[in-house]
Design a protein around this nucleic acid. Sequence first.
DNA 1: AGTTATTGTTACCGACCGGTAACATTGAAT
DNA 2: ATTCAATGTTACCGGTCGGTAACAATAACT
Lengths: 204, 204
Amino acid sequence: MKKQAKAVGKPRREITQGPLAQQKILEAVDHLFYFAGARAVGVDAVAKYAGVSKMALYRQFESKDALLLLYLDRMEEVFWSHFESSIAKHSGQPSQQIVQFFVDLTHRAEGLEFRGCPFVNIAGEFPDPQHPARLKVAQNKATLMVRLLELATATGASDAHRLALGLALLVEGAYAGSQTFAPAERILRRLPDVVRVMVDVELR
Amino acid sequence: MKKQAKAVGKPRREITQGPLAQQKILEAVDHLFYFAGARAVGVDAVAKYAGVSKMALYRQFESKDALLLLYLDRMEEVFWSHFESSIAKHSGQPSQQIVQFFVDLTHRAEGLEFRGCPFVNIAGEFPDPQHPARLKVAQNKATLMVRLLELATATGASDAHRLALGLALLVEGAYAGSQTFAPAERILRRLPDVVRVMVDVELR
DNA sequence: AGTTATTGTTACCGACCGGTAACATTGAAT
DNA sequence: ATTCAATGTTACCGGTCGGTAACAATAACT
């Protein structure tokens, strides 16, 4: 959380700045923060997992908090990558796009390695709603809400806001439920059915 | 996490065993674990908040994990107390009971002091699905599913399982969403509407 | 009153937390 | 070949983690 003096003058070596180290650290962060919890994992563990000394890590990144924010950035990328990938399967058919997104989401969430939504987990681990990480979470969800509202409107739903809200809550519910319900119950199995009904009732 | 020898023979003093201390510790646990996170709060903090020395705490309770499980027991009581209270408002009218539960849940979840579902938060803080706390979480949610299915069946829904799943996911979604979405957006405002539609479509 | 078990207090344990100072090593530009 | 900045290594900082040993005070039983 402290300021560090930027390197004065131009570096003699080109952009050699910890070339692969930086990448390995970020990958370690992605893995450990997601599967073990950002709060539970220490920087020592990150450095060791990345095969790097702790000091090397701290010369690449300001603080653990900085790593946390970068982690959320990457998770955001991954999420929208999945989202757009589902959407792309039914161009111009918003209803099917919505259902497809939930079908793919369900498929991912039912994997045993799934640890839920990174953003939901972060929100659970950091109580202060003003924490920078929490603000990123809120921003991600706000964007999701906008996109869902766009889709809901495009379907010609009788009440697009209501539909978008229902969908958003089902997304959050699927994420949270994937962790709170026992995996053996496979409650998400019929989530696409629920979504289909929710969309259809707005179209009749 | 260690075994401790149970007091052999009968205690000389009656049941004087830390009479109010025990109560104060549990109240401290409820407050701190919920609002600051079970993992983030140390036993020192619990003892200080309860106005008790740490050693006094450890003579009343085996370990922090034991406190965690007791905490979940109490949260379970609170949850079902709310649940039954909502149900009682419309005896014999399952559809209205369902809606009422969500109305009350929404009201609670929109409070600024709300920190989401204790069980969801615990699931986020403890990655290991086999952790005793996680098992309690799963059990709580399984019971909720049973109760929702009973209500859904009682409404005469065309597909009670689908309805119960939708409702369960909306519950989880409301809990998670109350923390992930920015409070100012007040996304839960129209959750009761969503529920009403979800129930009605099963009854036509 | 004297015994004895339970209480609260203090101080401590080894381990880990996030973060850093100091120094040996490296390697590219001169 | 020498210089010099960026790197990696090691050891360490004060603080906190969950948990405990040791001891003085207390209070109920005989």
